[in-house]
Design a protein around this nucleic acid. Structure first.
Ligand SMILES: [Zn+2]
Length: 651
DNA sequence: TCATGCGGGCGAG
DNA sequence: CTCGCCCGCATGA
């Protein structure tokens, strides 16, 4: 896992080989993924969740917050037992319109659609961050959705089409929903029945639980918050519910209330089981979605939670509660009968699609969990433990990871250099050049510079520290993070620190860095299965996947080669070095723990920073690099045109 | 009409 | 300062 990096980091460590993750449409929980620049879904910032763009005052990082899901005010149930979970319109205006509409469920007379707000991140909507670099598209999610999955875009689109054709849109919709649900349920049931099925999505299934556990286990923190003391409400599936509790009851409350009535509240209180029940209502839809992503969400959380709590059993129970495959199936048929055979027909595809179309989602889940650990752990641990060394686990991981990364970095470095050239290439594409000139850039730069300096010294730590922050609940986390950053900076982490703040922070730049986080997924999958057990151990043990720290990193310095980076890169390189020494790299990899593949080298920045800024800020423009060296990793989220280079470099 | 991005601004903490 | 959010503008389906 690449947990090491954080999107906000001014400089992300880059690895020679990025462990690209499969696209996860339903990323949930604190996960980080690294997608290939050519990954279409990633380029489009697609998500099964209804994510709306939010202004974080950071050109280099696109931030999106979850709008939750449209549910029936009465929480009516569809024939199959599932509930309606429509996709909220991203457009505020359109969403308002949606809200007053009558529930599409034929059987629901009085229900009206209302938005079930997401408060999965410490009481606030789950946020997704996208950062584009030449070689990769970095994705990071903060928070675990405390609501059912909304209809997937594809399904919603289908509905629209159908609706258009016919009038009984609502009805048709309901049908569709049911189908979706059914599919999802089926899928779920299948999953539940055997992991074997996982094949396509096996990862998904397993991962979630596993991942969560470790993370959870390791850190006292709540998955959501990451913080040790869970600020959030989360805890279990209950996360949501719990979260509501814990957190701000306020926020939570609203959330619940809307639902209607009882449900949410009860659920929360009840906790898992109840929650599960609650979810169950939702779940159907969720699952359906799941087809795409797979339900990781609902289940995942639950499972993860459960697992953490211990409960394989729980899980099963949850599954039962949540899924109700039987119901689903039944439903399906009815639905079909109702009509839209077409829809039905479509459905199947959908179900299938998930795997194919949205296969990534599966992975994500799994990976996500893993990541979390790494990420969360490292950061948290780091913080908590301090440094180090110890920390054992977390740290160790970090160290490990870092080390690994470092190593990689080292190795990478050389490559990087070459890469640098690549960067240029990249730059060309990515950045237009422009520079983002904007104030922000300057700000970032300043920040980076400052941070860089610090970081440089410490870079290695970066990953670790930085990351942690991300996960944690915002406030505390952020704050902490910041503090950490500072701390780390002193120590090492600086980089990350910079970036961390998503929102307004400017700091971030695109670097390339990737962390291993993303890898995790890949690893995760692999690892997961293998590791799951490990993961847990992880916590214990340490290492796990991750990152051992090999020192190899050193090479990285060479990376400095990165000259290109000039600034950063070098810094990174240095960082890498550091990492080697200190850092824990994130390494994702568990892969080899020992080996150095990764290379993150985080560079410190110095001058380099500027580049980044350029790049990132530029977003596209930055051609800046022109000189070649830049890597331009431009951040531009939007255009990831560039193919990933082999090397990474920094952006 | 919307989905999406961008970015100014405000307010809370 | 950091964040969350509201709001408007612009673009492209
Ligand atoms: Zn959400």
């Amino acid at each position: 896992m690449a947990a090491e990096w954080d999107i906000n980091d001014a400089h992300i460590p880059f690895m020679q080989e990025l462990p690209y993750d499969k696209f996860n449409e339903w990323a949930d929980g604190h996960v980080r993924y690294i997608y290939h620049p050519t990954e279409d879904h990633a380029r489009k910032h697609i998500s099964g969740w209804a994510m709306r763009n939010t202004n974080n005052h950071n050109v280099s990082i696109l931030k999106k917050s979850c709008l939750g899901v449209l549910v029936c005010s009465v929480r009516c149930k569809l024939p199959n037992g599932s509930q309606i979970h429509l996709r909220p319109a991203i457009c505020d205006k359109a969403r308002r319109k949606q809200q007053g509409r009558a529930c599409p469920n034929r059987n629901c007379k009085s229900g009206r659609l209302e938005v079930l707000a997401c408060r999965g991140h410490c009481g606030y909507p789950v946020t997704h961050y996208w950062r584009h670099t030449e070689r990769a598209i970095f994705f990071q999610a903060k928070g675990s959705h405390d609501h059912p999955k909304p209809e997937s875009k594809t399904s919603s689109e289908t509905r629209k089409i159908i609706g258009n054709s016919g009038k009984a849109k609502s009805k048709k919709l309901s049908v569709l929903l049911l189908r979706d649900a059914a599919l999802g349920n089926k899928l779920m049931s299948l999953k539940a029945t055997s992991k074997a099925q996982l094949s396509t999505g096996p990862e998904i299934l397993q991962p979630p639980p596993l991942i969560p556990d470790p993370n959870y286990a390791e850190s006292p923190r709540c998955s959501n918050c990451t913080r040790t003391p869970c600020i959030c409400r989360t805890k279990h599936c209950g996360m949501v519910a719990s979260s509501s509790h814990s957190k701000p009851s306020d926020t939570a409350a609203p959330f619940l209330d809307p639902i209607g009535n009882q449900p949410s509240h009860t659920l929360h209180h009840q906790h898992l089981h109840h929650s599960s029940t609650a979810w169950s209502t939702y779940e159907p839809s969720v699952f359906s979605h799941a087809s795409n992503g797979y339900e990781t969400e609902g289940l995942g959380h639950c499972t993860s939670l459960a697992t953490s709590s211990g409960a394989s059993t729980i899980r099963s129970s949850l599954m039962n509660e949540c899924f109700h495959p039987e119901e689903i199936f039944q439903l399906d048929q009815p639905l079909r009968q109702q009509g839209h055979t077409t829809a039905v027909t479509t459905m199947p595809p959908v179900s299938q699609l998930p795997p194919t179309a949205t296969p990534t989602t599966l992975l994500d889940l799994g990976s996500g969990a893993i990541y979390k650990k790494c990420n969360q752990i490292s950061p948290d641990y780091i913080f908590s433990s301090a440094n180090g060394s110890l920390a054992g686990d977390g740290y160790t991981h970090q160290s490990c990871s870092y080390g690994a990364s470092v190593n990689t970095g080292c190795t990478a470095p050389s490559s990087d250099l070459t890469g640098t050239s690549k960067y240029f290439d990249n730059d060309s594409y990515g950045l237009t050049g422009e520079e983002v000139s904007s104030k922000e850039l300057l700000r970032y730069i300043k920040k980076e510079a400052t941070t860089m300096k610090h970081t440089i010294d410490n870079e290695p730590s970066l990953g670790g520290q930085m990351r942690p922050k991300p996960y944690d609940c915002d406030q505390s986390q952020y704050k902490k993070a910041a503090s950490y950053a500072g701390r780390s900076a002193s120590s090492n982490a600086p980089f990350l620190a910079q970036g961390i703040s998503n929102n307004n922070s400017n700091g971030v730049i695109n670097n390339n860095s990737i962390d291993a986080t993303s890898k995790p997924t890949s690893y995760e999958h692999q690892q997961q299965q293998q590791q799951h057990s490990q993961d847990q151990s992880h916590s214990n043990g340490s290492t796990n996947y991750c990152y051992q720290a090999t020192t190899t990193a050193v090479a990285s310095p060479s990376t400095a080669a990165n000259q290109m980076i000039g600034t950063y890169e070098q810094s990174y390189a240095a960082g890498a070095v550091y990492s080697a020494s200190t850092v824990p790299s994130l390494g994702y990899s568990p892969r080899e723990s020992s080996q150095p593949e990764v290379h993150y080298a985080s560079q410190t920045y110095d001058a380099g920073d500027n580049y980044r800024y350029n790049g990132s800020y530029i977003k596209g423009s930055s051609s800046v690099h022109g000189t070649g060296s830049f890597h331009s990793s431009s951040v531009q989220q939007m255009h990831p045109e560039l193919p990933p280079m082999a090397a990474y470099e920094f952006y």
